[in-house]
Amino acid sequence: MRNKFAEVIYRESTKNSKICVVVADISPAGSMNLFRSKYPKRFINTGVAEQSMIGIAAGMALRGLKPFCYTIATFSLYRPFEMIRVDLCYQNLPVTVVGMGTGTVYSTLGGTHLTQEDISIARSVPNMNIIAPCDPVELEDALKYCCRQSKGPIYLRIGKAGEPTFVNKRSEKWKFGKIRKIVSGKDICILTFGPIMEKAFKLREKLKKDGNSVEINSCHTLKPFDYVTLKKKFNKYKKIITIEDHSEIGGLASIVKEAAYNNTYKGKIFSFSLKDKFIHCYGDQNDLLNKHGVNVNKFYRKVL
C-alpha cells in the first residue's frame, strides 16, 4: 500500500499544485522520491518530530494547501495526538494524516509499533474522518478523495506492503462514507475493513463448503459511518460477522453492536477483534493475530 500511496500522490500532485507531503523521518520509497525531487518545496521531512509534522501541516492548510502527513501509524496519530485534536480537528482543517503499517502489521517490532486502538481514539474526536482501505485499489480511490476534499481532517489507515487485491469487477463502486459490497452472498454478511479482509475471504470459502452464501463488505469509512446501509444489512441477514485488525473497544465491532441495539436487531453478531491487551509475541503478523484469537478456523467454529 505504501508504494501505491507514493504513486497516487505523485500522479495527483502533477495536476494539483496544492498537494504537499510532510513526513517524519520515514524513508521515502519509490515514487515519493520522485515527488521530492520534482517538488522540493512541497516535500518536508521534519525528522523525528511528529508534533512538528502535524503543526506544520495545519499551518499549510490554513493557507489553503492540501498537506498529507505520513509516517508509521503509532507516530502519526498517537505521538502528536494533541496537535491532531487542536490544530486539525478543532480548527477543522483538510489535512490527511496517513497511518502506515496499522493494526498488527509490525508484529516483530513489538508493542511500541502496533496500532490496535487508533480507530477508537480517532473516532472520538469531533470533525475527524476515518478511512481504512482494504487493498491498494481501494486506497487509490480513497486517496483521490482525500486530494479533492476540503471538508476536514482525515485519518487514512493503511497497511504496509504486499497486500493482495480484493476489489473485483463485481464489487460496488467506492464512495466516501458508504459501506461497499466486495462480493455478494445471501446467507451471512461479513463486515470488515483493511487488509485483514483476507481472513474474510478464507472464512467465506470455508462456509461456502457447508452451503452458505457469504457477502463481504468493506466498511472503509469508519467515520462518518454508513448507518443507512448497515440498517439494510440488519434487515436482510440473520448472521453478521465483523472482522477487524483493531481492538474490541471502539472499532467496527463496537459500531455494529451499538447500531444493532438502536435498530433492535434480532439476529446474531459474531465479532472478531483484537483483545484489549498488549500481547508480547514477536512472530509474524499471523502469530500475533492468533494470540488475539483472530484465526479463521476459530471464526468458523464459532459461526457454525
Binding site: K41, I44, I54, G55, G59, M60, L62, R63, D87
Partner: peptide, 14 residues
C-alpha cells in the same frame, strides 16, 4: 510555532 512554520513555508511556496 508549528502553525507559524507551516504558514510561513506556505507563503514561500505560494
Amino acid at each position: 510555532m508549528g502553525l507559524a512554520v507551516g504558514i510561513s513555508h506556505s507563503d514561500v511556496i505560494l
